[in-house]
C-alpha cells in the first residue's frame, strides 16, 4: 500500500469525488491558484478549472452562505476554511442556516455540503488562531462533526462527507498535514459514527480524536513501558458519537481518560464523561479524567504554550492516576 501525507489524502478524496460528480466543487480562500494555504488542493485547479475550484476573497460569512445556498439548489459544495478559527465569523451561517434549513423547511430543502479545514492549536499562533471548534459545532443538532488523524481516515471519511446529504464539519490539523500513512489504491469509504481502536489494551481506556490522537498514542506508549496497557479509541466522528465502542472498552478496563486538544469547560470531553457515568457508572473504578488545554486563552510564548497543551507526559500522569499507580 502506498504511504501518503494527510494533505494528499484530502486532495485525493476531493479529486475522486469531483471526478465522480460534477456537482461537487471546492471554494475558499487560496484554494485555487495558491493551491491551498496548506497545499491540500494542489493540482485541482489545473484539473477541474475555475468553474469548480473557486478562489474567494476574505469573506467567510459570504462564501459559507453561498455554499449553503448552492447546496440547497442542488450542488455539493466543499467549503474550505483556511483555519476553523475563521469559521467564527461564519458561525451564524452554520448555526442558523446550514444546520436548520432541512428542519425549518420541513424537509423541502437539504444542505449537502462539507466545511473543512484545520482546527485547534498549531504552534505559537496566539489565542485567536489556536482554538478548537468541535464543542461549538458538535453542540448543534443538524450537523455532523468529523475529526481525522490519519491519511486513511482522512480520505475515507472525507469521501463519505462529500456524498452525505447533510452539512458536515470536517476538522483537520495544521500540525498533521504532513503525517504519513498507508492508503489503499482502491476506493473505500468510512462510515460516520464508527470509532477506531488505534491501540489495544485492557488496563485504561484513552478516548481521543483529531490532534489528540498522536498525543494519546505516545502517552499509551509511555504507559506500556510502565506496564499499563491502554485501549486508545479514536472517535473519528464527534456527532454522531460511537459511545458503544467507548462503553465496551470502559466495561473492560473500568478506567478512562479523555485526551483532546481544546478547553475543558463545557466541551466534547464533558459529553463523553457524562455519557460514561450515565451508562457505565457501576463499571468505573476511578473518576474519568480529562487531559486537554488549560482553561486559558492560548498564550504565544513557547514556554507558556507548552504548559497549556496536552502532552504525552500529562497523558501518562492521568493514566497513572486512574490506575492508582504509585
Amino acid at each position: 500500500m502506498p504511504e501518503i501525507q494527510i494533505r494528499h489524502a484530502i486532495r485525493d478524496a476531493m479529486r475522486e469525488e469531483m471526478t465522480r460528480d460534477d456537482r461537487v466543487f471546492l471554494m475558499g480562500e487560496e484554494v485555487g491558484h495558491y493551491k491551498g494555504a496548506y497545499k491540500c488542493s494542489e493540482g485541482l485547479l489545473e484539473e477541474f478549472g475555475e468553474r469548480r475550484v473557486i478562489d474567494t476573497p476574505i469573506a467567510e460569512t459570504g462564501f459559507a452562505g453561498v455554499g449553503i445556498g448552492a447546496a440547497m439548489a442542488g450542488l455539493r459544495p466543499i467549503i474550505e476554511f483556511m483555519t476553523f478559527n475563521f469559521s467564527a465569523v461564519a458561525f451564524d451561517q452554520i448555526l442558523n442556516n446550514a444546520a436548520k434549513i432541512h428542519h425549518m423547511t420541513n424537509g423541502q430543502h437539504s444542505v449537502p455540503m462539507v466545511f473543512r479545514g484545520p482546527n485547534a492549536g498549531a504552534h505559537m499562533l496566539g489565542s485567536t488562531h489556536s482554538q478548537a471548534f468541535e464543542p461549538f459545532y458538535a453542540h448543534i443538532p443538524g450537523l455532523i462533526v468529523v475529526a481525522v488523524a490519519t491519511p486513511y481516515d482522512a480520505k475515507g471519511l472525507l469521501k463519505t462527507a462529500i456524498r452525505d446529504p447533510n452539512p458536515v464539519i470536517f476538522l483537520e490539523s495544521e500540525l498533521m498535514y504532513g503525517v504519513k500513512g498507508e492508503v489503499p489504491e482502491e476506493e473505500y469509504l468510512i462510515p460516520f459514527g464508527v470509532a477506531d481502536t488505534k491501540r489495544a489494551g485492557d488496563d485504561v481506556t484513552v478516548i481521543t480524536w483529531g490532534q489528540g490522537v498522536p498525543v494519546a498514542l505516545k502517552a499509551a506508549e509511555l504507559a506500556a513501558e510502565q506496564g499499563i496497557e491502554c485501549d486508545v479509541i479514536d472517535l473519528r466522528t464527534l456527532r454522531p458519537l460511537d459511545m458503544e465502542s467507548v462503553l465496551e472498552s470502559v466495561r473492560r478496563t473500568n478506567r478512562a481518560i479523555v485526551l483532546f486538544h481544546g478547553w475543558p469547560y463545557g466541551g466534547v470531553g464533558c459529553e463523553i464523561i457524562a455519557q460514561i457515568q450515565e451508562k457505565a457508572f457501576d463499571h468505573l473504578d476511578a473518576p474519568v479524567l480529562r487531559v486537554c488545554y488549560e482553561d486559558v486563552p492560548m498564550p504565544y510564548a513557547e514556554n507558556l504554550e507548552n504548559l497549556v497543551l496536552p502532552t504525552p507526559e500529562r497523558g501518562l500522569a492521568a493514566i497513572r492516576e486512574v490506575s492508582y499507580a504509585r
Binding site: 466543487f25 468553474r51 460569512t61 459570504g62 462564501f63 459559507a64 452562505g65 453561498v66 455554499g67 449553503i68 445556498g69 448552492a70 447546496a71 440547497m72 439548489a73 442542488g74 450542488l75 451564524d92 451561517q93 442558523n96 442556516n97 425549518m104 423547511t105
Partner: peptide, 22 residues
C-alpha cells in the same frame, strides 16, 4: 422565510451561483 437579518443575502447569492454553475 429568513429571520436573522441579512443572513439570507449570501444564501440567495448561493442560489444564483448554482444557477450560473448549472
Amino acid at each position: 422565510g429568513y429571520a436573522i437579518i441579512g443572513n439570507h443575502v449570501p444564501v440567495a447569492t448561493g442560489h444564483a451561483f448554482a444557477s450560473k454553475y448549472l
